[in-house]
Amino acid sequence: MRARITPLGTLLALVAGLLTALVTTTPAQAAPLFKAPYPCGQTWTYSHHSAEVRQALDFVRSDGGATAGTPVLASASGTAYRYSQPTGAGNYVVIDHGGGWKTYYFHLSAYSVADGAAVAQGQQIGTTGSTGNSSGAHIHYEQLYNGVGQSIVINGVSLAPYPGSYGSRFLTSDNGCSGGGGGKYWVDTFANATGYAQANTNDPQGVLNAGTNYVYCKVWGAEVRDGSGNYNHWWLRTDLDTVYAGKNGRGAYVSAYYLSRWGNDEARDNNGTVIPNC
C-alpha cells in the first residue's frame, strides 16, 4: 500500500491551528494576594469616577485619622519604580509584581523607597498626598494585568461594583498587621513625640512625627503623665523621623502615652493587638 502524503499547506494550517489553540487556552497568570494600600487596622472609604478609565479606586480615611501624611503601603511584594507627572498623577509609584501584574499609587506627598528598590508586602512606599491633578489628599490605586486595568481585588475579594461616592463602602486593612510586614506594628500618635535612647527621658535622640507610624516592640520604663491623669509606663521602640545632631534615630524609644487609641498603661497597635515585649 502506498503511503498517503499530506500537502504542505494542510500541515502548516494544522500547526497554526494548534498554536492558536495553545495561546488562547493558556490561563492568565494568577494575581498576587493583594492587600489594602494603607496600614493595618485603618478603615478607609472608597469611590470610583468615570474619568478613571483603568478601573481605579480612590481611597480616603474614614476612621477619624488624617488621610494626608498616612503611609502608603505595598499591596504585594515586587520592584518599585518612582515617577512624577505634575499635571496628572503627581508623584507616584508603580510596583511590578511579576507575571504581568502591576499596582499604581498616585498623588503621593513623598516617596519612601528608592527607584528600582525591591519591596515587601506591607512596606511603606510613600505618604498620602494631593500632588498632581488632585482636589484633596487620597490614594488613587490601580491593579493592572498586562497593561489593562482590572477590577480591584483585596484579599481575594472583588470590591466591585464600585460606588460613585465616598461614605457607602468601607475597607479595613490587614496589610502589615502583627506577624507580617517585617515585624512592624502600625500605630497612630496624636502629637509629635520625643524619642529617647532608653525607656526614660534622659537622652533625647530626635522626634517621631504625629500620625501613623510603625513600632517594633515595647519595654516597661519611666512613667509619662499629664495634668489630666493620663499616664503610661510602656515605651515603644521605633525609628524617628527627625534625628538630633550626633544622635541615633534608629531603635529609639517613644512613650506609649502618645498613642491615639487605648488607655493608661496599654500598648496596642491599630488592630488592637498587644505589641510584644522587646
Rank of each mutant, 00 (worst) to 15 (best):
N155L: 14
Y196V: 11
H140S: 03
N200L: 07
F170D: 05
G122M: 08
A191S: 07
V157E: 10
V113M: 00
A210M: 11
V93E: 01
A197F: 04
S151F: 14
A210Q: 09
P163S: 03
N209C: 14
V187P: 06
F190T: 08
S168L: 08
Y92K: 03
W186K: 07
D115G: 09
F190V: 13
S130F: 13
K184G: 03
G100E: 01
L108N: 03
G136D: 00
S134W: 04
T131N: 06
T212R: 09
Q124L: 01
G136A: 10
N175K: 05
G181A: 04
A110E: 12
K102I: 12
D203Y: 14
G129W: 00
Y141L: 02
S165Q: 13
N146E: 14
L144C: 14
G180T: 12
I154Q: 14
L159M: 15
T131P: 05
A118F: 10
S112L: 12
D188M: 13
H97I: 01
W186V: 07
D115S: 15
G156T: 09
A117L: 01
P161F: 07
Y105M: 02
N200F: 00
N133Y: 11
Y216W: 08
G116E: 06
T172L: 07
A137T: 05
N175I: 02
V153T: 15
K184N: 11
V187S: 10
T189G: 12
L171F: 10
T212Q: 03
R169L: 14
N200S: 07
A191V: 04
T189D: 13
H97D: 01
S178E: 12
Y185T: 09
G164Y: 12
V148Y: 13
K102R: 15
A118M: 11
H138P: 00
L171S: 11
I139L: 08
P161D: 04
D188W: 13
G149M: 04
T131K: 00
A197K: 15
Y145L: 06
A210D: 03
G179P: 07
T194A: 07
G116L: 07
I139R: 11
F106V: 14
I154D: 10
A210P: 05
D174G: 10
Y214T: 11
V119W: 03
V94G: 06
V93M: 06
A199W: 11
V187M: 05
T131H: 03
G100D: 01
A110K: 13
G195H: 10
L208W: 10
P163I: 07
S135F: 10
V94P: 04
D96G: 08
A160F: 11
S130A: 15
G179W: 07
G126P: 02
W101A: 03
Q123W: 03
V187A: 12
G126Q: 08
Q198V: 14
A114G: 13
S173Q: 00
G206T: 09
K184D: 00
G181Y: 03
N146W: 12
D174K: 00
T194G: 02
T189R: 13
I139G: 03
G182R: 01
I139D: 04
N213W: 11
Y104W: 15
F106P: 15
S178A: 14
Y162G: 06
P163V: 10
S158L: 03
D115I: 12
Y216C: 02
S151W: 15
G100I: 02
V215A: 06
F106K: 15
G136N: 02
T131Y: 05
V94L: 09
N213H: 13
N209Q: 13
V94Q: 02
C177Y: 02
I125S: 00
G98R: 10
Q124H: 03
R169K: 15
